[in-house]
Amino acid sequence: MIGNDLVFFDTYHHGDASRFKRKFRKICSEEELIILPEKDERTYDIVWSIKEACYKAFQREFNFSMKLNPLQFEILSIEPSLGFWETLVNWKGSEVKIFSLIKNEFVYSFTSHSTHHYFNFSVSMPKQLKSKLKISKSIPLYTKMNNLPYILISDQLEPLSITHENAKIAFAW
């Protein structure tokens, strides 16, 4: 169950308070809204990132077609602390734990199943990661099978989740 998502906190939320309320209701049920510590723009981004990481993990596992249904990924519990949230999410009876790392500029969420993460927001990031993982220059950093990415670690192909916002990328495997 590999899934990750990166959201940079920015100013894309526009419109008045009533629009923002409608926006939150598109991604959260009444029950979820009750357990959220805040209902501000930053929290919206964190919730989106949690649900998107979850969506990617389940989509990979169950191979369903692309859809926009954040309400289907139901947050059951949240343990928020400074800079880190631990969340339990349910999708059609299957539960997954999501960890969210919250920094000043961004939130990075990932399933608890992934053991390795790499994000370094420079254009040379793939090159640096290859060097770190001692992957030969002649071998691509990752490959795709059935349109799903895999990374070569110690001669083994490991499922890989990639998230990017503009030129900024994060990998989880």
Binding site: H13, K26, W48, E52, P70, L71, E165
Partner: peptide
Amino acid sequence: AHLVDVILDVEDKFNICIENEEM
């Protein structure tokens, strides 16, 4: 992360309400 904004813009532009199953 911006897809919900597209849906809200569509609702506002056409004065309609998009249900979850449609979204």
